[in-house]
Design a binder for these strands. Sequence first.
DNA 1: CCAAAAGTGTTACGATTACACCCATGT
DNA 2: ACATGGGTGTAATCGTAACACTTTTGG
Lengths: 224, 224
Amino acid sequence: MEKEQLQHIQVKSDSFECSVTTDIAVFGYVEGSFKILLTKRTVGDFKNRWLLPGGAMEDKETLEDCAEKVLFALTGFKDIHFEQVRAYSALLRHPIKRVITICFYALVKPENHPLALKGDVEEIAWFDMDRIPENLGFDHGQLLRDAHTHMKDNLKDKLVVGELLPQKFTLAELQNLYETILGTRLDKRNFRKRILQMDLLENTNEKKIGVKGGPLLYRYKKKR
Amino acid sequence: MEKEQLQHIQVKSDSFECSVTTDIAVFGYVEGSFKILLTKRTVGDFKNRWLLPGGAMEDKETLEDCAEKVLFALTGFKDIHFEQVRAYSALLRHPIKRVITICFYALVKPENHPLALKGDVEEIAWFDMDRIPENLGFDHGQLLRDAHTHMKDNLKDKLVVGELLPQKFTLAELQNLYETILGTRLDKRNFRKRILQMDLLENTNEKKIGVKGGPLLYRYKKKR
DNA sequence: CCAAAAGTGTTACGATTACACCCATGT
DNA sequence: ACATGGGTGTAATCGTAACACTTTTGG
């Protein structure tokens, strides 16, 4: 008689409850090289493997809140822009218990965030994107690959650069960032045309001092 | 002293556990019109609102398993192709308890799947995509919009058409499907060029009978 | 005043769009 | 036989990519 539990079980209270975590691919952009933040921790099955930073979602927080919390704990930085990548739920992705994770990515400037060992973190370090350690713990190798392609796509057609640049920046700085992240060389004139056509930046009419040529500074337009 | 619970709480067992559901935007393609499957159920806060079909994830199943299970329960169809859209975790998205949901979409042919009322489903029906009821329950209006744009993107550059076509189909049938889903009219010659260039289809050298002109049948190439 | 970086326009190319007729088959 | 839908190529257009010199500023 109680065979009717197939739809809309959302409302039932006897349903299975599951640990939920977020894992974050924190990409770092350092003048010409592109990095990923990894940690090793002191406990658990993947003690000796590098991992994406991650943490459990708690009672009164959204996944985004959780990602923020984790990232703040590690880097001390707030108000970072996150993008959701996707959810992972393979049964054995965690060796001990059932855990699903939602992967996010963020873009930061490492120089702004001295790393500190906190909590059960034993080591934390930036790795060059083309020298990523093999065999990340859990399924984090997969998460990282997915986050990376997702991030590149977003960059190309949505100009999502997170907090990688100061509020006012030159087009050359922006182009540099693109080239580093995409790993390609771009034509200066075509790049400027393309970016300015998107109509997302505005000229501040200020010049950046201390650099030859006196480049103009741009900023993001206020959103309407 | 126990302040160090910020990272890698995945391994802790005292962490918060959360109800997890999947909701599925099941899009239906019926010769020239494009539909979405919605249900009303007999219980709960959103008794009188239309909802995407959804259900709770259980102990020994992945999110994908769960989506399959739910869809099977509703339509009796198996081996449908799913695509993940994203996760939703707003604190008050469910009025009674904390529930996060992962949204998927699927593409089916309604004609293959007579609808039946099962479980706590009171009504189930296909709605024309341009006559969607207002005020879906929970945040399902949002999920549906997101799933729809996601699905159109996938269609355009990945040729993801799920199980909407028979194994062997004519290019006209495929074009028809595109036009219905994207809501635009396409040029026959350009369409054929574009599709065949993708190099995902192969000619079976059979002709479809019963239709004038004797169109060739195509099928998906074996994946390499 | 010299070196370094900023800034700017035009042409060439490839990709996409528009467009019309003949052929095969079912009735 | 005729009506319906299948199948095919070319020219025009648009967006993207290639390319080099002058101007500004710091040292």
